[in-house]
Design a protein around this nucleic acid. Structure first.
Length: 292
DNA sequence: TGAGCCCACCTAGAGTTAAC
DNA sequence: GTTAACTCTAGGTGGGCTCA
């Protein structure tokens, strides 16, 4: 096994499933390879070989770009109720003064933050680089809907520290602001007005990568690509969000979310949730002809 | 084995060019 | 002078084949 294969295996063994791209990033952070397209091709090829040879289990690699559509069906009404009971959850944020969303630049890191977001009933918004207009408009509709119930939305953003990465914050605020203005029946005159409108409804904090984290955590840097058209207005080296350890990213997300959670309300909600789940289980048992 | 090509997609902003 | 269309370079996902 080559050094690169060992590095790939170690990255996946420590944290999986992840995408091929994600594995590539983890290995670049260790210094085993450079972050170049040529090295990415190498990782792709090696990972294909490692899967075929069963050196790496297939389920360690996630492919989120191909997916299946099929309806949800049940063998019986009783099974439907049992499955509902097993997955039933009370909405955590419905009555909270603030709703939280986690925004992520890279699909490759979705697996790192998905579990934290699922646990806390928080939407994970994956941009895949710059977000699309449609994606931003959908987000704006959700934010606008919450505002009708006096609920402010707090966005926590995770992205690269590079010329395009730091600009995505602005694109999110501006794009959502434009849609929010439209939803309120007016057109934002310029970028500044769009951002002002955004702040009337929501807040966005960049959680990672920040300049403070680069210094404090001694994060590995890479030269900023001069070919990026935004490089002129960007100072210093670039840092990938992937260079922060997955556990540390999860901890960052969790602390952001927990800051908005009312512990007392959470306890009440969990009690209600458990009782209502038992109701569903009893209904399923009745259909099954059981005696629970 | 590693490098260098190719393919299928998605998104954005910046800068240039052509049309009005 | 303004606007629209286009090109280029960024960001992201996955796969393949050939050649030295």
């Amino acid at each position: 096994m080559t050094a690169i294969r060992e590095a790939i295996y170690a990255a996946l063994a420590a944290d999986h499933p992840m995408t091929v791209r994600g594995a590539f990033y983890r290995v670049t952070v260790t210094g085993a390879i450079a972050k170049t397209e040529a090295e990415y091709q190498t990782v792709k090829r090696l990972l294909a070989d490692m899967r075929r040879s069963r050196e790496v289990p297939y389920n360690w690699i996630a492919d989120s770009s191909r997916w299946m559509r099929r309806p949800t069906t049940y063998s019986s009404a009783e099974e439907a109720l049992r499955r509902t009971a097993a997955t039933y959850r009370q909405a955590l944020w419905d009555d909270a003064p603030v709703a939280v969303e986690v925004w992520l630049e890279k699909e490759a890191l979705a697996g790192v933050l998905a579990e934290v977001c699922r646990e806390w009933d928080v939407p994970l918004m994956v941009c895949r680089g710059y977000p699309s207009m449609s994606f931003l408009h959908s987000a704006a509709e959700a934010i606008h809907g919450r505002a009708q119930h006096d609920q402010h939305t707090h966005l926590y953003y995770f992205g690269d520290h590079d010329p395009s990465g730091v600009d995505i914050d602005r694109a999110v605020r501006q794009g959502i602001g434009e849609s929010l203005a439209a939803l309120d029946g007016f057109a934002a005159e310029d970028a500044g007005e769009a951002e002002d409108t955004f702040y009337d409804f929501a807040t966005l904090d960049r959680v990672a990568v920040t300049t403070a984290q680069i210094g404090a955590w001694n994060l590995p840097t890479r030269p900023t690509k001069a070919s990026d058209s935004r490089a002129r207005n960007f100072k210093g080296a670039s840092v990938e969000v992937d260079s922060i350890q997955p556990a540390q990213l999860r901890q960052l997300a969790e602390s952001c979310i927990e800051a908005h959670v009312d512990r007392h309300e959470l306890g009440v909600l969990q009690t209600v949730e458990a009782e209502e789940r038992r109701v569903l289980e009893r209904m399923a048992a009745t259909l099954d002809g059981g005696d629970q």
